[in-house]
Design a protein around this nucleic acid. Sequence first.
DNA 1: ATTTATAATTCCGTTATATGAAATTTACTG
DNA 2: CAGTAAATTTCATATAACGGAATTATAAAT
Lengths: 269, 269
Amino acid sequence: MSDSAESLSSLRRALGLLRLVGATDAGGIRLKDLAEQAGCSQPTAHRALQDLAAEGFVEQIGKRYRLALDFFVLAARAGQAGGLRDLAKPVLLRLSATLTDTIFLLVRNGYDAVCLDRIEGPFPIRSFTGDIGGKVPLGLGQGSLAILAHLPEAEREAVIRFNVPRLLDRGFLDEAALRVALEAARVQGWVNLNTGLIPGMAGLGVPVFDAQGRVVAALSVGTLADRLRPERLAGVVAILKAEAATLGAMLNPFDPALRHPSRSLSAVS
Amino acid sequence: MSDSAESLSSLRRALGLLRLVGATDAGGIRLKDLAEQAGCSQPTAHRALQDLAAEGFVEQIGKRYRLALDFFVLAARAGQAGGLRDLAKPVLLRLSATLTDTIFLLVRNGYDAVCLDRIEGPFPIRSFTGDIGGKVPLGLGQGSLAILAHLPEAEREAVIRFNVPRLLDRGFLDEAALRVALEAARVQGWVNLNTGLIPGMAGLGVPVFDAQGRVVAALSVGTLADRLRPERLAGVVAILKAEAATLGAMLNPFDPALRHPSRSLSAVS
DNA sequence: ATTTATAATTCCGTTATATGAAATTTACTG
DNA sequence: CAGTAAATTTCATATAACGGAATTATAAAT
């Protein structure tokens, strides 16, 4: 629906190339394939890549292109999306120290939840979100589900409509199960999906609300199933909720980022 | 030397704008200032920003622009120099669990060492490298020094020549002290610079070699000086070296990234 | 080593598109 | 409710982005 209209500006095209380079794994990608996938001529791709490389976004290793470390550094230095990450850092550190488990900070981005930060606990964790920068469809995983559950009705429905096929594709919840889980999340105020999607793993997510009561993020814990048995669980929930409240209270209620929530949706390609 | 020649391609200009947006902190930056700093007209900046926003690299909050999450997501993938980050993850986790200290994974990038990943220990650590994505001149800090010490002669000399002034600027080692430290690092095979540059802190770094014996990274530990007293130190060294060996063994000897080491130097701006 | 094939890079005439001045709209500020 | 400054849109112009074709480099095969 979005890309059917042909001609893009040269900049859009170049950014598309950058994205394609990013989609490739460590080995890099050849100019030929890049041009083909982007649907532009080889000389065009070549020139764009030269510029991208000159600006330090891409590096050319032999005949292959891949994202440059400078790009990584640039992002790391950049004012972290909304300052949320910086604000949340002490919260994550406290949680990590208190719970001795892996802690995630997730935010919504369009139809996905993105891992903004994470602090590793001593146990090896497998999670859907993966590392910082990782993405999961909203609804998959505890934190992700916590966010989805507390979105305003209209947005939530839009996301569900869009995501159900994606979830099915990945072989997870169907719509009915998803709605049950969402309802449970809403009444409980936290998520503890023990669907056993990852054997031996368990997790727990709580939403973070700003002063207007909008969900802006989720905190979650990932750990071994053993470590979330009933007696410990209640305590962990309490601690997580307390920290989520703390974090929420730190959010500037006048942050203009929260005034145009629809934009983030429409920005999805 | 690089930007004195005027006309840049429109792409370069747009990427410059992106960089400027990134240099701003969470509050964002106005179009006016952006155009001014970039040295282009307002309409030009405007259109570029619209495209950047349409591709999800930048978001417009009210009248201010800032980096969007997509940018961070993409950048997170840029850390993958040779997939090293993913490969190293279990190693870092093991080290963190075994040593209960903060663990760093550093790689070389031009004249700098970049922190590719780090796992927080329970002790509050101050380090030069700082957080993930942080940079230090090669030679400053244990891991960074470990890398420099094991570079091939010619490259090492080039880096030293370039970095000595930078190190002096920051008030640290002079060339003589640096060379002594490098020699020690080479014979010992690990670095334990107790220069007391950061009071109360201590660290320890070991190089990671690939199958051809080239340094590709360093593992290091940062902790309280107390925790690296002689009796514990030997054990920590042994563990670090063992993990460095494990990691090295996992590296694909045919990674093309390692075949053109000179490029990474010349790519420095 | 020599040849062959495939991809990367450079050239160049054409045309699309990026550009900035000026005009218009929008949103702040006193 | 003005008055002002910035953000957008419009538009004619010139530029620089485009792809076909030619050239060079690189890899594969014999």
